[in-house]
Design a protein around this nucleic acid. Sequence first.
DNA 1: GTTAGCACTCGAACTTTTTGAGTGCTAATC
DNA 2: GATTAGCACTCAAAAAGTTCGAGTGCTAAC
Lengths: 343, 343
Amino acid sequence: MEEQLSERSKRILEAVIEDYIATAEPVGSRTITRSHALALSPATVRNVMSDLEEMGLLTSPHTSAGRIPTDKAYRLYVNSILEVKNLARDNREEIRRRCRMAGKDLAEVLKETSRLLSSTSSYMGVVMAPHLGANVFHQMEFVKLSSRRVLAILVSQNGTVQNRLLETGEEIAQEDLVRMANYLNGMLQGLTIAQVRERLLSEMQSEKVRYDTMMARALTLSQQTIQADGAEIFLEGQANILEQPEFADTAKMREIFRTFEKKSMLLDLLDRSLSAGGVQIFIGSESNLLKMEGMSLVTSTYMTGKDTVGVLGVIGPTRMGYGRVIPIVDYTAKLISRLLEVE
Amino acid sequence: MEEQLSERSKRILEAVIEDYIATAEPVGSRTITRSHALALSPATVRNVMSDLEEMGLLTSPHTSAGRIPTDKAYRLYVNSILEVKNLARDNREEIRRRCRMAGKDLAEVLKETSRLLSSTSSYMGVVMAPHLGANVFHQMEFVKLSSRRVLAILVSQNGTVQNRLLETGEEIAQEDLVRMANYLNGMLQGLTIAQVRERLLSEMQSEKVRYDTMMARALTLSQQTIQADGAEIFLEGQANILEQPEFADTAKMREIFRTFEKKSMLLDLLDRSLSAGGVQIFIGSESNLLKMEGMSLVTSTYMTGKDTVGVLGVIGPTRMGYGRVIPIVDYTAKLISRLLEVE
DNA sequence: GTTAGCACTCGAACTTTTTGAGTGCTAATC
DNA sequence: GATTAGCACTCAAAAAGTTCGAGTGCTAAC
């Protein structure tokens, strides 16, 4: 596995990859000698390319075409050839400008961020909201809407609001609702949502509650409120990937769109980068999600509070401008973390 | 304009349209005589089709191809030929089953509805949330998150929740926030959001407020909360229209996706059907939104309360199964209205 | 080790041919 | 007079055939 690549081979591989990224066409030996100032003849390059093919870094779609980098080549490129530049001032400016999103609630900010990622990268932007579970409970509220409908509102310390319409079996007076909320707010102060969930369950078992209908009711209501935790995903800029020549084929397109419509697969992938932190790169087939064939994902984590971590990133074709995308993702993640910092 | 169409011509036009809807191919005289049991020879049908072409109801893409219905023909078809069947029991069942969305908040319900429309029609589903302005104010709440960040929550009678993070210039004590909320809740009881907006403005002018900093602050905060009114649109099932052969061309696809990414154009169109009520049909070019070329929109209105009206519908190619889609839209709208009824 | 030279390959692009669904018109038929 | 059979004509799409050129691998010379 430990391929010893000479400096020259690396330069040539780099050239192939960069040409391919730019043109999406198989690249041949002549093209390289012309565009990249290597003092080598096409024939020599050909020999080297032949070696690279042997190593599984290049393939040719057919005998008389140029060569295409494999996923393995991209990996190598990303890990040890690519030098990540700093973000151009223009880009930095633009990102920063568009990050002024005062007054919007978290969901809106994240959606806007996803859009931002998509438009600056010109691929798809994706942002996963932090798992609710890590949020810190702040307050709970019950609002009576009509005789048997109650709106429950759950506020976390980082400003996330979760609300849920509940049908109560029988009418509950507004004063009782307030009392319930107070009771719960006292009990749950400072816990994370995950802890809240446990606490509510254990509380419901306890003796003293069993004989106090109001408390029982309060617990039931709050339990219902807190149930759902489908981490939200904001995926924007799908139209961008229609632009990519490798997806010109309608059937492939459809496949991709269908895949992203059910967001579960994406969730898996994003969850995985959650634990690692920092910028991460998933290249095509590596993420044994066959569906991702031909696509790569560049992610970074961001924070909305001390312990609440989300993931954002860019999805594009494997043949993606990594050198450009990586700093975009990185910078955006940092900026958003700062923006959402709990002061 | 008042074309007098013989019964026979109508039958033939109907046949052309239905064949075209089924196959997306230009239909010729022979095809019709074969599939639709008209006791006529191809030659006769040809003559009639020629007349229909004269009237601007059919066109042929080129001399030696069959004919295609024009938008005008679709209009005629929808208005006076098509008989809208009742929804098949299966479909009704499915829609009803998927409408069990207890406990979800309004946004989720509407999104799910959009998805439902898309999957039962196999085109795109679209749901526009009612304009906030028509909602009836129910309650407002300020939650202090940190020293200078306040979360404002606005609850409407129909269960819509609007929330907004506000940065306050200086720290405000939680008790003051509660007092402010109480004051506002008293003042704004029973008004619609639109009225609330006016009221707040006029109140801010008034003498007595000018000297009461706390009231002034309360008004400012609530004003900020209520600002945004970008009617939300839920558009689902884009992948479905990739299936339609008329959009196989990538360039066209991209155009469409871009159009729907900015939702403003759609908003216009939906707003228009808002006032009319009942099932409405927009056919391609009629809605002088050039972008809609080749697409039709079937809408109906639904209600989330006495006065809050939203629009939902299906977007598909002009060549859409109107007979199937219309009852789907109609039935779904009714069901959702019932579901969201304020008891 | 590098390079020039050359025969060979094979998809893409362009032409040409074939095919067949469809038309419009005219004259015969009901 | 409306309907239909017959026939010449049209034209896009599919199939078959050409040409072109970028690219390769190999060998022999530098």
